[in-house]
Nucleic acid binder design. Structure first.
Lengths: 236, 236
DNA sequence: AAGTGGTCTAGACCACTTG
DNA sequence: AAGTGGTCTAGACCACTTT
């Protein structure tokens, strides 16, 4: 399992900031020398990290640390698409930004002990100018020190891009649980829906490396014009 | 791209019946000789087929053609789980088995020209003895020649297992679109739900090799006790 | 003991990008 | 032309399973 050790070291370099998002890695022969393994072993480690979108290879140019840009976010973490299957980048409108104590459910999802301080962010996402998604985001205050409404609002990239560039936290995977419910009063108001409308409720726990929970998010989706899309192939 | 050719040939062997589900493949050195490539190239082809669950490796024993048993079905294609996250194999109750002409929507999903003949199967799936899912399955009659209600009812394995063992069709991937709606009169009756209940509606197109559509399925799920679970990692 | 897959090596040559 | 990743080779040794 030499390649596992190489993979762990590459991840450690990213977490420690030795390898910053967007930066190039040393070439494969140099990595092989540095780790005292053959090129094939380096390739196997890099292969897996590329499959997880942590690294990006460009033939003839080099291998780079993956940046959480819009494209990556849409491809990997945004599963809402129109009836035609086309996925559009949503316009995000901040509703509320507050700091409070984690509920029991939130603490459990984030792996917190007791009721630690969390940031709660409510957003409305618009597609084609119409409000479609109500996001309620919960993150541990200790994991995102110095976050303020101002920092949050003035971000230039996606929310996950902010996590990565401002706090060094790269989201690499997420689990979601989806169910149908009748829209709540608050979501109905934000999404401009009448009472009694069925909506999707999506609970997401997003993880950084080593399956460490970083974000808990509840999304309420008006699915009159869009679907939640899921592809089942290879490793489920 | 030699390993691609090896992979195609291995798939062709499975489709033609040369390699039957559950049967062992020749060992890697024999395969390498047969295809005139090195073992490493064979391994790369087999690696991908293992990732897609088409082949199964067992160290020290050999490599086998994947059988669509309950375990594989549950792991790869059944995404409904209880609130505790545990997934239970459902009891299936046949409601109706009919033969009719494909609607436009069904023909499009299955890639049929015109309005060909299809089998329509309605099932009720029970979890812990309670009806939770109403499945409406549509498959092309030409793709499943000789299928009857009797054959369908007397199957010993899963539905996808029947496709594989009786018709040589292995389901390898599926796309799903999920939304919330109010339960229909028919589904409400089958699931013992009052009118006005929100339910999940899942449209699935299941594919065999080469992304050839084999089944169109609409599942209506009562999500009061269960969730639709989705994991986002590596290749989305 | 014999046979299998699992890992690793140390190269070779090719395709692509950049200067 | 030089440097990069992409593919392929032809072995070696190990861990595991079966006989």
């Amino acid at each position: 399992m030499l390649y596992r050790q190489v993979k762990r070291q590459l991840i450690a370099d990213i977490q420690s900031g030795v390898a910053a998002p967007g930066a190039a890695l040393p070439n494969e022969t140099d990595l092989a020398r540095r780790f005292n393994v053959s090129i094939g072993t380096v390739r196997r480690a890099v292969d897996e990290l590329v499959a997880e979108h942590v690294l990006v290879r460009q033939q003839g140019r080099g291998t780079f640390v993956g940046k959480m840009d819009r494209e990556r976010f849409m491809f990997q973490f945004f599963k809402i698409a129109g009836r035609d299957g086309v996925s559009e980048f949503p316009q995000v409108r901040l509703h509320t930004f507050t700091r409070s104590r984690a509920t029991r459910e939130e603490a459990q999802a984030l792996g917190l002990h007791g009721t630690q301080s969390v940031f709660c962010i409510d957003n409305v996402l618009l597609l084609k100018g119409r409000p479609v998604i109500h996001d309620h985001i919960v993150i541990a205050a200790t994991m995102f020190p110095g976050l303020t409404e101002d920092v949050f609002t003035k971000r230039t990239a996606t929310i996950y891009g902010l996590y990565q560039s401002a706090f060094g936290i790269t989201i690499v995977e997420a689990d979601e649980r989806v169910r149908a419910e009748l829209v709540s009063l608050e979501s109905a108001r934000l999404l401009n829906l009448p009472a009694g409308m069925p909506v999707l409720r999506i609970e997401r726990v997003a993880y950084t490396f080593d399956r460490k929970p970083a974000e808990f998010r509840i999304s309420v989706v008006d699915t009159r014009d869009v679907d939640y899309v899921s592809r089942m192939r290879d490793a489920a």
